[in-house]
């Protein structure tokens, strides 16, 4: 008795008063012990940054535990929630201040789960940001060609941060994911 799902629609251009909020992208305070910056650009098919995109991440903590605690909308005093939201700026840049997730199962991959929304994008997209040190032996990565695989693995910045660009379309198009039950 599977119910048919409600279809998605574009986030449109007018979400900025509604969805962003104070410290939405600061899963941990910037500069705090163990914090890193995960950041990059959302590009359209012409290689231009998308200034009206929204990126959300979900992740495990450094012990490999996915937090199930409230407080993402009012961070001060809240524990690490493992979820954050970043709109892009006028150049298409997004960023998060967070900690690195550890694998949830021993020997498994470590990744950030990602959802992407944008004006002009009619439904959400899912992808993963793999940590370069924990990408070996992953069943998804192992199915991809080398360029696609490289596109899902973050690059290490000089300051220890992680850089991950999202290409909605084009030669470097990001590998997007579909999960069981998603249909079309």
């Amino acid at each position: 008795m599977t119910e048919p799902a409600t279809p998605g629609q574009t986030i449109g251009p007018f979400f900025h008063e509604a969805l962003p909020y104070a410290q939405d992208r600061e899963l941990v305070p910037p500069g705090s012990m163990g914090s890193i910056r995960l950041h990059g650009y959302v590009y359209d098919g012409a290689g231009l940054g998308a200034p009206d995109a929204l990126v959300e991440i979900r992740q495990a903590d450094p012990a490999g535990v996915v937090p199930r605690v409230e407080g993402s909308l009012h961070r001060p005093g809240a524990a690490f929630t493992g979820w954050g939201r970043s709109s892009t700026d006028r150049t298409g840049h997004y960023w998060f201040s967070t900690v690195e997730p550890a694998p949830v199962r021993p020997g498994g991959p470590a990744f950030f789960a990602v959802t992407v929304f944008a004006r002009g994008l009619l439904n959400r997209l899912f992808t993963r940001v793999y940590l370069p040190e924990h990408a070996a032996g992953d069943p998804l990565l192992d199915r991809l060609d080398p360029a696609e695989r490289a596109g899902l693995i973050a690059r290490r910045d000089d300051d220890g941060g992680l850089r991950f660009d999202i290409h909605l379309q084009g030669d470097a198009e990001t590998v997007f994911l579909t999960f069981p039950g998603h249909g079309g």
């Binding site: 359209d44 098919g45 012409a46 231009l48 998308a50 944008a118 004006r119 002009g120 994008l121 009619l122 997209l125 899912f126 069943p139 998804l140 199915r143 991809l144 909605l168 379309q169 198009e173 990001t174 590998v175 997007f176 994911l177 579909t178 999960f179 069981p180």
Partner: peptide, 11 residues
């Protein structure tokens, strides 16, 4: 310019 051209990968 904002739609992926490849099918999403099942995972």
């Amino acid at each position: 310019l904002r739609h992926p051209t490849k099918r999403p990968r099942p995972v």
